[in-house]
């Protein structure tokens, strides 16, 4: 049955419900939203036998604290924030246990799932909070989090625990090599610029968030052709007038007026999402 499971003692730098995002509303100007690292978020649900679209809590960097109001199963996956519970595994909490994420060591986004999935309001088919668009609101101190009624999670008989294989856990400190597909204006960039894009190591800047990740490096030649606003996708690499690429992320605008050099492969957007400011990354052609 649904129960008051967790109390938010501190949302830290940012805590929102997220799921797989919304489909079919981009022509109304609504971005897809959803967990920035869908790999970690979906593993948190899988560890607890939750449905794949169950809402999880997405935590930014550090500072969040939760209090268990009842015994319950949780799973924490994603960025390493020195969690007070073991991560990448199903964990049994007892009433009055506190779960803390005091200090970010690696990655950006940490995911907290609860057995059955969080009971979060759905708007336009999704529980993903899109703060700027007033679709849901971030968690605040004192919020009581419920789960969705369902059969209680149980480990199979004779199984002592459930954790994720080491090889599925990602090292967010490695320099990722992100696969990129040609964008609609790919062939209008010079060969030298395309080579410069693929050859150099780009750095994620602090002006990066759920909307877009801005990269610094040797600037590309900005497009000198006239552009009219065209649709954007999650992962689209736009090159604005300063020549420094911006990769559109899950809360990014649905249309944009800068040339679109490429699109980061959907499977690699999660790897980019976990790159902290200052982290280097490289691109390679997906084809």
């Amino acid at each position: 049955m649904s129960a008051h499971l967790l109390e938010v003692l501190d949302p830290g730098l940012g805590a929102t419900f997220q799921d797989r995002g919304r489909v079919g509303w981009r022509r109304f100007g609504v971005p897809p939203g959803g967990a920035m690292d869908d790999h970690a978020a979906s593993w948190a649900n899988v560890l607890l036998d939750n449905p794949p679209d169950a809402p999880v809590v997405e935590l930014l960097l550090q500072g969040a604290r939760f209090l268990a109001l009842h015994d319950c199963w949780i799973a924490v996956c994603g960025a390493d924030a020195e969690a007070s519970v073991p991560t990448w595994r199903a964990v049994r909490l007892r009433a009055d246990d506190e779960v803390r994420f005091p200090h970010n060591r690696s990655g950006v986004w940490t995911y907290l799932a609860v057995e059955g999935g969080f009971d979060a309001p759905r708007l336009l088919g999704s529980a993903s909070v899109y703060t700027r668009g007033r679709l849901g609101t971030p968690l605040v101190r004192g919020d009581i989090l419920l789960n969705t009624p369902g059969a209680p999670f149980q480990l199979p008989a004779y199984v002592a625990g459930r954790s994720l294989a080491w090889e599925e856990r990602r090292n967010y400190d490695a320099t990722p090599l992100l696969r990129v597909w040609p964008g609609p204006q790919w062939s209008q960039f010079s060969e030298a610029d395309r080579a410069a894009f693929l050859d150099q190591t780009w750095t994620v800047t602090p002006q990066s968030d759920r909307v877009g990740y801005r990269l610094s490096g040797q600037p590309l030649t900005p497009g000198r052709w006239q552009m009219i606003s065209e649709p954007l996708r999650v992962g689209t690499v736009q090159v604005p007038d300063d020549g420094r690429p911006i990769v559109m992320m899950r809360d990014g605008p649905t249309v944009g007026g800068y040339p679109k050099l490429g699109v980061v492969d959907a499977h690699d957007v999660a790897r980019l999402a976990q790159c902290r400011p200052g982290r280097g990354l490289k691109f390679r052609m997906a084809v």
């Binding site: 981009r26 022509r27 065209e230 649709p231 996708r233 249309v255």
Partner: peptide
């Protein structure tokens, strides 16, 4: 078709 986004001279089909 999962999603489409019309703009001035283009339409995106996903």
């Amino acid at each position: 078709l999962l999603e489409f986004v019309p703009a001035y001279t283009t339409v995106l089909l996903e």
